[in-house]
C-alpha cells in the first residue's frame, strides 16, 4: 500500500500539471519564537495581527520557479507532540529561536535535538533563524550556534541566520541560502 501511495504521488504531480517543482518546508520552534510572523513575512502579509497558533498555518511562496509550501505548526508545549505528524516528505526544516529568551535556550535546544533524531528528518537540511534580533537583549547568532552545538551536525547541511521577523531584517538572507543550497540542487 505504501508503494501505491508513492506511485500515486508521482501521478498526482503529473495530474496537477504543474511545471513548478514543489518544496515542502516545515517551520518549527518553541511557542512565541516568531514562526507565524516569519511565515507571514515570507508571504508578504501583515504581521501585526498575529495570535498564538493553536493549529497550523500553510503558505505557498513562489521562489525561483519553485513553489515553496511552508507549514508553520504551533509551538506550545501541548502541541509539540503533534510535530512529528508533519515531518513526512519534508525537504527543509526551518527552526526558529527567540534570541532574547535566554531562559528557554536549553528547552529549545532539547526540542531541536529531538527533531534531528526523527527518522523522517534524516539528512534533511536545517535552517535556524535566530529571531528577534531587534530586541536589545537578543543573543548573537554565533552564540546561539555554539550553545546548540551546531558544529557537531555532520549528517546534513545547516545554516544559522540572525533575523527579525517583525521588520523582515535577515529573512531574505535566509531565503537566499534556501535557494542556493536546496532549490538549485533539486
Amino acid at each position: 500500500m505504501g508503494e501505491v501511495q508513492k506511485g500515486l504521488f508521482s501521478v498526482i504531480e503529473k495530474l496537477k500539471g504543474t511545471t513548478e517543482q514543489e518544496l515542502r518546508i516545515v517551520l518549527l520552534g518553541l511557542d512565541n519564537a516568531g514562526k507565524t510572523t516569519l511565515l507571514k513575512q515570507l508571504a508578504s502579509e501583515d504581521v501585526n495581527t498575529i495570535t498564538p497558533t493553536q493549529g497550523f498555518n500553510i503558505k505557498s511562496v513562489s521562489c525561483d520557479g519553485m513553489k515553496l509550501n511552508v507549514w508553520d505548526i504551533g509551538g506550545q508545549r501541548k502541541i509539540r507532540p503533534f510535530w512529528k505528524k508533519y515531518l513526512e516528505n519534508t525537504d527543509l526544516l526551518i527552526y526558529v529561536i527567540d534570541s532574547a529568551d535566554k531562559k528557554r535556550f536549553e528547552e529549545t535546544g532539547l526540542e531541536l535535538s529531538e527533531l534531528i533524531d526523527e527518522e523522517n528528518l534524516k539528512g534533511v537540511p536545517l535552517l535556524i533563524f535566530a529571531n528577534k534580533q531587534d530586541l536589545a537583549t537578543a543573543s548573537p547568532a554565533s552564540e546561539i550556534a555554539e550553545g546548540l552545538n551546531l558544529h557537531t551536525y555532520r549528517d546534513r547541511e545547516w545554516q544559522i541566520q540572525a533575523c527579525s521577523a517583525v521588520d523582515g531584517e535577515g529573512v531574505q538572507d535566509g531565503m537566499n541560502w534556501i535557494i542556493n543550497n536546496i532549490v538549485k540542487k533539486k
Binding site: M1, V4, G55, N57, G74
Partner: peptide
C-alpha cells in the same frame, strides 16, 4: 479560518487511508 486545526490533519490521514483501501 486562515489557521488550520490539528484535527484536519488527522481527518486527512483517515481520508488517505480510505482512498487507498478503495483503490486497492
Amino acid at each position: 479560518e486562515d489557521e488550520n486545526k490539528l484535527t484536519y490533519t488527522e481527518i486527512h490521514q483517515r481520508y488517505k487511508q480510505l482512498v487507498e483501501r478503495l483503490l486497492d
